[in-house]
Amino acid sequence: MITVEITKLTDYGKFRSKLRVARLQLATVQKQILRETVEKFLLPKIRTKMAQANYGRDIIASTIVSDVFIFEETFQVIIKSEVLSGDASFDIVRFREFGTKRHFIEPKDPDGVLSWIQDGERVYSKGHWVSGIVGLNLIKDTITEERENIQKEFQRREEQWFKSVIA
């Protein structure tokens, strides 16, 4: 609740000029507030969950707010995470977030071999089947969990700004 006290006739003019300033700043300020709020309250929680689920550092670092849109009465904040494989043929975050089915893997070079260390010993393969991984949907789930808090925080900051302009 914001109360504006009008005690003199000239107060209306002052109030309206302040209102004009608020209207000019509105979209920019709302975008800025949204970005700050999400970066401060939502992203750290997503990153913490990613770290707990053994996501790679690249994935954690690449999780950012990519865009903020303000519509007439609603807003959208786009949270993006992208880490491409070495040859940029697929996106690692996508597999971690949405999971994979059982699939066959083989070296790209027909003369090459796959190699890794298992139980302390190096093992080799010309190609084999691997089981799929379960998708964790960390970003989506965290957004759902924190939606209400972020919304409240955004509105609080928005109102604080408006008061500072109008008062």
Binding site: A22, V93, I150
Partner: peptide
Amino acid sequence: MGVEDIFEGTVNITEAGLAELDKIAEAQEK
């Protein structure tokens, strides 16, 4: 490509609301 998720919500202060407020103040001033 990457993963993109959208966080949606509603704004409290709208341009239309401020315009309405301005209109009321203008009428009162007149």
